[in-house]
């Protein structure tokens, strides 16, 4: 599975590189990366949000989704394939789904604001930004739970510990043999 997983990671990486190229070649929009504030030096304005996203908004969101998929695929790469099970796939799939929902809520919330010019607030921030800030921060919590609570099952089991200790013992034995051999030869 790990050998196939690397192909999936490569495909996602290539798609992301392709998206970057497509965005780079998209019709340019003036001041898409911000412009100087007329009144306050050092402050930047975003300006017309709809215009900035007109040609690349969907591509940008797709890039974000691929990045989230890549994060989950890479996390799976860090787990020994002996622990790939239906339960493990469910946890990782659930983590990805949660992150994608947060990303969609943020993106669609921003689009809704651009359409209507109105926004609600949640814990001090406009709703879309609250999804970005609190949601993204919390979005990785399922992954962290899989790591911390599932540590003995997916990351480092008793069997893993025994195998690692065996490796250390083999190494110590080999070093001991290497050290003692010259003396034995002399005797």
């Amino acid at each position: 599975m790990a050998s196939r997983l690397i192909y999936a990671i490569l495909i996602v990486a290539v798609l992301m590189a392709g998206l970057l190229l497509a965005i780079g070649l998209a019709e340019p929009v003036a001041d898409a990366g911000g412009m100087a504030h007329p009144d306050f030096p050092g402050m930047q304005l975003g300006g017309d949000g709809a215009a900035r996203l007109e040609h690349i908004g969907a591509l940008g969101f797709l890039f974000q989704c691929l990045l989230l998929i890549q994060i989950v695929l890479l996390s799976m790469l860090g787990v020994s394939e002996r622990y790939y099970s239906g339960e493990f796939y469910a946890y990782m799939g659930g983590s990805l789904l949660f992150m994608l929902i947060v990303a969609w809520q943020m993106y669609s919330g921003h689009q809704a604001y651009l359409d209507s010019g109105e926004t609600g607030y949640f814990l001090g921030f406009p709703t879309a930004t609250a999804w970005q800030m609190y949601g993204t921060w919390l979005g990785a919590i399922p992954l962290i739970l899989v790591y911390s609570l599932g540590f003995s099952r997916f990351i480092y089991s008793d069997e893993d510990e025994a195998r690692f200790k065996q490796l250390l013992q083999d190494k110590a034995a080999a070093e001991s043999t290497a050290e003692s051999t010259p003396d034995e030869l002399e005797q």
Binding site: I23, A32, G33, G34, H37, Q44, L45, G46, G47, D48, G49, R52, L53, I56, G57, G60, F63, Q64, L67, M106, Y107, G109, H110, Y113, F125, P126, A128, T129, W131, Q132
Partner: peptide, 17 residues
């Protein structure tokens, strides 16, 4: 400036991502 406090800020979507 609404964009400054919206999810992608003044620098825009690709700088943010």
């Amino acid at each position: 400036d609404a964009e400054a406090i919206m999810p992608y800020g003044a620098a825009g979507i690709m700088a943010s991502l």
